[in-house]
Amino acid sequence: MTGDECPESTDTPGVTPSPVAMARSPVRVFHSRAKIALLVLVAILAIATHVYWLRWAAAPLRARSLPKGFSPTLIWLHSGDGHSLPGQDTLNILVELQHRHGAKILFTVGRPSRVVALGALPCMDEVVRQAVARKGIPPENVIGAPYRRGQLWDAAEWLQEYLKKHRGDRVLFLSETFAGAAAERVFDRAMAPDIRERVAVFEVPDRRFDVRYWWRSRTGVKAIMSGYLFGTHGLVVPRPPDPPEFTVRELLDRFPPRVGGAP
């Protein structure tokens, strides 16, 4: 009898095992089962430890801890779009920090807001002035930087010149959650080292999610996504070009008049 005729007889002394029997030998079966068991184990471990590695995934986006004893004389707010403030609950954080450090508030704008230009909203530094005044902070404590069109990089360059003239000032920049590291990278590149060490970054917590459990909230997931996308782009293109600019008239003339007149 040959192995081909009777695969089951492989353990018979003196008979060579068949190819089929070799392919499914106990050692091979053990190996493939061990691989599957290892995969399952890794999956279970990943689920069991998700809190740690998901937190770890957010760590590269966070700002560094404030230097020990860092006491700012200026709290810096930057409105990229010219009509909103970074993060949620910014006003309360701003007031709390102002009371704690007695610092003034510096406000810069990234690009001109059409909404402000139209008069639908007051200038943002005026909005901040009125808001903090309601919380007991004198409006003269808010410094509105002269308007400069550009990105955070341009605002950082402006601040550098300001800090050269005001040698005693230390600045605390308020950033959105998970955007702190990206802001730090801009300052690292845009500022001279001696100026840079006088600027620290503080991430304004977003009340809609807990940063330690960001994956449990849709807002948290969006914040991580935007942190990674903006952060990645900042690494590749640290100083992006200025976006196009349109006047109100250009936008209102966007569509041609309908032939046949008004409906």
Binding site: L251, L252, R254, R258
Partner: peptide
């Protein structure tokens, strides 16, 4: 910053 302006344009142009 842009969408209300487009909608106003549509309305004004009939």
């Amino acid at each position: 910053e842009t969408r209300p302006f487009a909608a106003a344009s549509l309305l004004h142009h009939g």
